[in-house]
């Protein structure tokens, strides 16, 4: 599954969840981690990733840290306290959506089914 429209709606949740599991990450690292976890099935485009990161930062859900790496500067993102709270809410929102989608696609399935 590599439908960009499907990924777009869940991008913020993906970023927040990854940052919950990893203390801090930089842009390129996020794209590689997603690729690795999904065995290349999902590829986050840079055109969507960076605006999403900047938006989450502006909303106070992410904080940033600048660090010198070799001869360049790297910007690391990490969750703020508000961001940590948002992960739980976004995850249950997404799980609820997937559950409802499953009900529509396979009506025989019992309610409460979780993927």
């Amino acid at each position: 599954m590599s439908n960009n429209n499907l990924i777009k709606g869940s991008l913020q949740t993906i970023i927040l969840k990854l940052l919950e599991e990893n203390e801090r990450m930089y842009g390129y690292e996020i794209t590689q981690r997603v690729k690795e976890l999904t065995e290349g099935e999902i590829k986050i485009t840079e055109g969507a990733l960076y605006p999403a990161l900047h938006k989450l930062e502006a909303e106070g859900l992410l904080s940033t840290e600048i660090q010198q790496v070799d001869n360049r500067v790297r910007k690391y993102y990490s969750l703020t306290k508000d961001g940590q709270k948002e992960v739980t809410s976004k995850m249950s929102e997404l799980q609820g959506f997937v559950e409802n989608l499953q009900r529509i696609l396979t009506p025989d399935l019992k309610p409460g089914f979780n993927i």
Binding site: P51, H54, E57, A58, G60
Partner: peptide
């Protein structure tokens, strides 16, 4: 694409500074 990213970032930074000021 890079210029669109830059413009979006400027917008986001305005929002961030305003939110920071308000808090």
């Amino acid at each position: 694409h890079c210029h669109a990213l830059q413009a979006k970032f400027l917008q986001a930074s305005k929002k961030e500074i305003f939110n920071l000021q308000w808090s």
